[in-house]
Structure formats: structure tokens, C-alpha cells
Amino acid sequence: MPHESVSQADNPHELLATVRELTRQVRVAQRGTWFPLLVFATITLVAIPVYRYAPYLDLFGTCRSRPGHTVCAAPNPAELGYWTVALLLAYVAIAAFYVRQSRRRGLGTPIRPYVVVGVALAVLMTAVSVWLALHPLVPVPADPFSTDPAEIEVGAAGWLVNGLASPIAVIGLALLVLAWVERHWALLAYDLAFLALVVIMGSQVIHSASPWFFLPHLLVPAAVLLLGAAVFAVFRPQPGVRA
């Protein structure tokens, strides 16, 4: 009789521990971290020909010209249009991947908050970018053709706002939500390092007449995303294997 009482007293604790362990295993099985990183790396690489060859659309009237040379204070709206569409399509692809994976494994997927936040950030990025084009935090120099760094000096707060409004930063901010959804501490650490890289690169001004001057701002994040996708793919949970 005492033995039965002890077993009954232990049962609720054992049941709670079992439920927690099953919940953890389900969360691990739901992870598909490598796929969003691969998708974002792909759209970042595809952006290269857009940056290089898309004609500049002076929608905000910020361009100033002189014979043989033109300077525009605002980014090319064609690039902004590309990123808006590319990010929205990326989240559609990511949502479809997670839904397909959940059906194949017979598990539900909590990916909706991540997709909703990602889409919201993409739309917000577009709105903020348009606002910054009309109200630039980086002051326009008296001589738009000047290369004097003092003429384009801006505070740390200005660089931070400009950097966080960039498409690459939007990708990193949305990945924070994915880390929370998947309860993925490795992804959180990776993403914080990625965001730090974005902020550092966003604070760098490249003075170059080359039409390929933008390459580091795309190739470096794309390489980091591809590396992350490869690592998370190698260590992704396998169906039926206890994590």
C-alpha cells in the first residue's frame, strides 16, 4: 500500500517531465532553419544584377548632374522594389516549406508568427526607406559632387537607423522571431552575430567610382547566410531520431 502511494505521488511529476520532453522533441523536429537562410542568401545574390544593371528611377528628385557625372542622394527605387517583392516571395516560399514539412512529419508548425512579422518588416522597410529618401538623415552636402568626408558626416544614430532600415537588417530582425518560434539558441547566437555584422557594414562609406562598389554589402551577408544554411542543414534533426 505505501508503495502504491509513492508511485501515485510521483506520477504527476513524471507525467509533467514526459510532456516537457515530448514538447522539446516536437520543437526540435519542427526546425527547418537551413531553408530560410538559403532562401535569403539566394535573393541577396540575385540582387547583384539588379543593383548593377537596373536603371536609376529618380522618383524622389534627388539626382544632380554635371557633364559626364550624376549624383543621387537616394537609393535606386528599383532596388527597393526588388527587395520588397523578393522578401514577400521569400516568406511565401518559407511558409510553404514549413507547412509541407509539418504534413510530412505529422506535426503542426508554429511558423505563422515568423511569416507575419517578416512580411510586416518588409512592408515597414519600404515605408521607412521612402521616408528616408524624402527626409534623409545623412545630410546632402552643399556640393553634391564633393568627396570630402566632412561634407557627409552623420552621427551614429543616423547610421544605425539607415542600417536597420536596410533589407539585410530586416532579414536579421525577422530571424530573431524564428529563433524564438523554434526555441533555437544556436540560431539566436548566429543571428545576433549577423546583425552585428550588418550594423558594422552599414556604418562603412565606400568611396569608389566603380559600378560594382556595392558588392561587399551583398556578397558578405550572402556568404554568411550560405554558411549558416550549410551548418544548420548538416546538424538538422532527422525524423525518427531522438534529439
Rank of each mutant, 00 (worst) to 15 (best):
C72H: 01
R20L: 06
V154R: 07
G106D: 12
W159V: 15
V116A: 13
L89G: 08
L173E: 05
E14F: 09
V26A: 00
V234W: 15
L218Y: 02
Y114I: 10
F214M: 13
A150Y: 02
R64E: 12
D10E: 12
P75S: 01
P239H: 01
L175M: 14
R66C: 07
G202C: 03
A95V: 08
V177Q: 11
L87F: 11
G172F: 00
R64F: 10
A127L: 14
L15G: 02
W83T: 13
L89S: 06
S203W: 15
F232D: 02
A142L: 10
P49V: 04
A223W: 15
P239V: 00
C72I: 14
V19Y: 09
P2K: 11
L45P: 15
H135R: 10
A29N: 09
G158S: 07
A95E: 04
G118S: 06
L132A: 03
T23E: 09
A229F: 08
V205Y: 12
H217F: 14
L227S: 15
E4C: 07
R66D: 04
V138I: 08
V123E: 07
L164D: 00
F213T: 15
G163Q: 08
I206V: 12
T70D: 06
A169T: 03
E4W: 15
L187Q: 03
V234Q: 08
L121A: 06
V6C: 05
V170A: 02
M201K: 08
L15K: 07
L137S: 14
I94W: 04
R100E: 10
M201Y: 10
P237W: 12
V50Y: 01
